[in-house]
Simulated scan of single mutants.
Amino acid sequence: MIKAFLGMGLLGSNFVKAMLGKGDAVQVWNRTTSKAKALEQYGAKVFDNAEQAAEGADIIHVTLKDDATVDEVLDAASKGFKEGAVIFDHTTTSVKGAVQRTSYWKDKGFIYQHAPVFMGPQNALESTGFMLVSGNQSVIEKYEPILSAMTGKLLNFGAREGKAAGIKLSGNLFLLSLTAGLADALALAKVHGIQPSELLFLFNNWNLGAMVPARLKKITDAAFNEPSWELNMARKDAGLMLSAAKEGGTALAVIPSIAAVMDAWIAKGHGNDDWSVIAKDSL
């Protein structure tokens, strides 16, 4: 089986290294040719354009920037697609784009399967991390061995096309929020003369990540009348954070918006509810 891989960024190039290490024949292309050429030493066949890279390939993998880039590259590469070729797109894209491409390539006689990932470059090299799929379950079942070999765990979210794209974006939203929250925590710690290493010591012992499933369950169960931390008290703490940051001449990115949402829910009479009531409208 011949594979093509289009897009040799950090993720794509390490996917290719892992494939080559397992004995796969891989044809590669990248807009910046030097990134593709760097894989020749590992056994990749490098081509100057996407069409040539796709010629004769049974499977075409894609890791690109966005919807527009995926559409542009696949359109160019399609001139070299063999009959019945399968496209696996690991790009983080819009739900709409994933759905439209599934239909578009099906009409042209090809299988397009969106398979975004929660994987960094090292995960791609080690075949660890998580890959997400949804859509045609017959297609997913048939190609599950190929996709599973690329990742630590393949998560199948059912028959609805585009759902994997939506879950990927939701997960990335949480990662962005987490990083912004950590930036606020570091900024507030700095105001109080606390070193980043001391904050790391706290989180190494108090594992907030382990609390996420329980917190999400509390929100989805809508158990807001059983508070473990009342909204009024959480808002008081947010006020302390904002005051300390202002006195220290530091701007916080996340807390001002959270405080505003808290104020709105308190005004609606939810001050004595669990503070997670601020997520109620998201259900």
Rank of each mutant, 00 (worst) to 15 (best):
D24A: 13
K45P: 05
K37V: 12
A25V: 02
D71E: 02
T33N: 11
I60N: 13
V70K: 14
E55A: 13
D67G: 09
V46E: 02
A44F: 06
T63Y: 14
A44M: 01
K45Q: 11
H61T: 08
K22F: 07
K37P: 01
K65T: 10
L39G: 11
A68E: 02
Y42F: 15
A57I: 02
A50I: 01
D66T: 04
V73L: 09
Y42K: 12
F47M: 03
D24E: 09
F47R: 13
K35W: 14
G43Y: 13
E40C: 03
V28R: 11
A25Q: 06
S34P: 05
N30D: 01
G56S: 02
T63R: 11
V26S: 02
N49F: 12
L39Y: 11
A50Y: 03
G43R: 14
V62I: 10
Y42E: 04
A54R: 04
A68G: 00
K45A: 13
A44P: 00
E51K: 15
A25G: 07
V26Y: 04
W29A: 08
V26R: 04
V70D: 01
T63Q: 14
T32F: 07
A38I: 00
V62F: 08
K45H: 10
D66M: 00
H61R: 12
K35M: 07
S34K: 15
Q52T: 04
A50N: 04
G23L: 05
L64I: 07
A53R: 13
A38T: 07
A38C: 03
A36Q: 08
V70G: 05
G56C: 03
A25M: 06
V73S: 03
G56K: 08
Q27F: 09
K45V: 00
K45F: 03
D48G: 14
D71C: 11
R31M: 01
K22H: 13
N49D: 11
E55F: 08
A25T: 12
E40M: 10
E51C: 03
K45I: 02
D67N: 05
R31S: 09
Q52D: 15
I59P: 14
G43W: 05
Q52C: 03
A25F: 12
H61L: 10
G23N: 09
E72F: 12
E55W: 06
V73G: 07
K45E: 04
D71K: 12
